[in-house]
Design a protein around this nucleic acid. Structure first.
Lengths: 329, 329
DNA sequence: TTTTCGATATGAAACGTTACATATTCGTTG
DNA sequence: CAACGAATATGTAACGTTTCATATCGAAAA
């Protein structure tokens, strides 16, 4: 018996089944074919262990059934949860996920897009921070959590609403001296709206809301100094703090306890993201929970939609509040 | 001017540059070509915005420059760190990462392998728990942290050595009543050696070491009950506990404090993995640190090695001890 | 029985590359 | 000055699919 060194092809299956090449193709593309033919082909394919060669198919159809996922850092629990969601949503629809990590480097982001174009994925789901990212408009692209322009569809949490929710919660829990704390990348992102929403609630009630907005490069010292500078007689000038994300909230909580303040008795603290401890599943702090799973699913949905001609340019998903020990519930 | 609706091909570049098709191919494959020709081709390619079609190339060469990474759950910080390492090590060598998540489901693992074979990746890096995984021996496969057989190369941390290290540390810190706690999947994995190493040290010194080994399905209650059952007069029967991983260590620490014990004053606790808090970067507990980055790099290295004919079947990487608050340093 | 028509199998062409055998060019030697 | 050979450009045949025009078949209508 002749030894086959390479994988069997449709030609082999056709010969084995005694049918034409085109018939085999139809069977594997779910195109109607006589019942007896279909059976013969399937049988033969199984005998030979045939697998369609997706590169030949991709060459012919220009569809690859793979989508690139671009993330700055999959080590961050929010991003990894997102990746999990995107990956399984894609898998459920028969798509592969090609993972690209940019390490927040704008150049790397552009290179990813480039690589991705060369590698002919069917679309891109991106969470990028490069403000002037050059996106090929022919390539389906969905941005997560970062709005570019009306022509680039984006799915994000309702950041403004989340900020409002945090403000309302703090008010409800008796806070009267609010503070908003932000640290983030220099490029304006969706998350800026969190502070806007937060402040809007107080403004509407004629209250003033303090705020400190920093960039990543500044580090956290200014925040510690700020807090220390607002201590007077063992008492902080603020009794309700909203942090732009959970990571910051956790650090701020440490600062506060180091200053001798009790959380939540003296100061209440709300973060944003809804991250959970990897081992216990507890929230790290009271927080506004982003619907990570829905974010991922919606993103995939928008990307793979049949008719992409009139996609909304921004889809906002609702957030929820979850107590996590840094508020009086 | 004629409107091009599809991407330019080598044929277009060849026409634009006034050279033969084969010459263009050579330029893009770094095959020696006359200097003037090369320039003409590069120029033309740039003008046309030409990108090689990797599916045509893959069809011809049977190499796709992509590797599948199979993980049970990218949400777990250890796995996401690994993914980060693998992804960037692959990117550095010009390979894409195709991410597959199995959710610990043996069937999903097999399906991934299947999908992967169909999609013609150049290799697989897998962290799988299916004991009877059917791996195509023709496909380069490297297993991380899970030894299958001599024919499947594996890279893992020195789990036995890590167990020994934990034991030595505890001895050094004055422990005389050790306990090993394990919870994990039913299939025998590399991590079983952690307990073996731990116990071996005490056995060698003629000491006895208690141990409790459970499976995931058992849940954590038995461990809590076990600990509670070993309390007598406000004192625990053990003064040094080694947990098979950090996740367990964190839970056990909570159990211990709930029992009114102080960590590390009354009981010292060492975990395994070396996970760090996402916001502060602190270790969650005193721990044996796995070299995640090296694990990833070594795996990629073994997979992409030119001569894979005599790969070691198991590579053990050294681990280190890091204090994290649950030991007296 | 012959014609027509619908249904469906067939086979060839094309997708964009790479690789190989062939053709061309130019410098060097007899 | 002719002839050779090394170097390098050319063109064509795959690679394994899909797709489309053509061929075939059988049943229904004339």
């Amino acid at each position: 018996m002749k030894q086959r060194d390479s994988a069997p092809t449709m030609k082999d299956v056709a010969r084995e089944a005694g049918v034409a090449l085109g018939t085999v193709s139809k069977v594997f593309n779910d195109i109607p074919v006589g019942e007896d033919y279909r059976k013969r082909v399937e049988e033969a394919a199984r005998r030979l262990g045939y697998q369609v060669n997706s590169y030949a198919r991709g060459l012919k159809t220009n569809r690859t059934c793979s989508v690139a996922l671009i993330l700055p850092d999959i080590t961050h629990p929010f991003f990894s949860a997102l990746a999990q969601g995107v990956c399984s949503a894609l898998a459920a629809r028969g798509y592969r996920t090609i993972l690209s990590i940019t390490a927040y480097d704008p150049e790397a982001e552009q290179k990813c897009i480039q690589m991705v174009r060369q590698n002919k994925v069917d679309g891109i789901i991106g969470l990028t921070y490069n403000p002037e990212l050059d996106i090929d408009p022919r390539l389906p692209y969905v941005s997560i959590d970062r709005y570019f322009s009306p022509s680039v569809p984006c799915v994000a949490s309702d950041n403004f609403g989340g900020g409002q929710l945090a403000a309302e919660k703090l008010l409800e829990l008796g806070c009267t001296r609010p503070l908003f704390l932000r640290i983030g990348s220099r490029v304006p992102g969706e998350s800026d709206k969190r502070g806007d929403g937060f402040e809007s609630v107080f403004r509407q009630r004629g209250m003033v809301c303090a705020a400190l907005r920093l960039n990543d490069e500044d580090g956290l010292e200014p925040i510690r100094d700020f807090l220390a500078g607002h201590m007077g007689g063992g008492r902080l000038d603020f009794d309700g703090i909203f942090c732009v994300n959970d990571a910051l909230a956790v650090r701020v909580r440490n600062f506060l306890t180091a200053l001798g303040l009790r959380v939540p008795e003296d100061v209440q603290l709300i973060g944003f993201d809804g991250l959970r401890h990897f081992a216990t599943g507890d929230f790290y702090c009271s927080t506004i929970v982003q619907p990570v799973g829905r974010l991922a699913e919606t993103g995939v949905d928008m990307l793979l939609r049949e008719d992409r001609s009139n996609l909304p340019s921004l889809v906002c998903l609702p957030v929820t509040y979850a107590p996590g020990g840094t508020t009086k519930e």
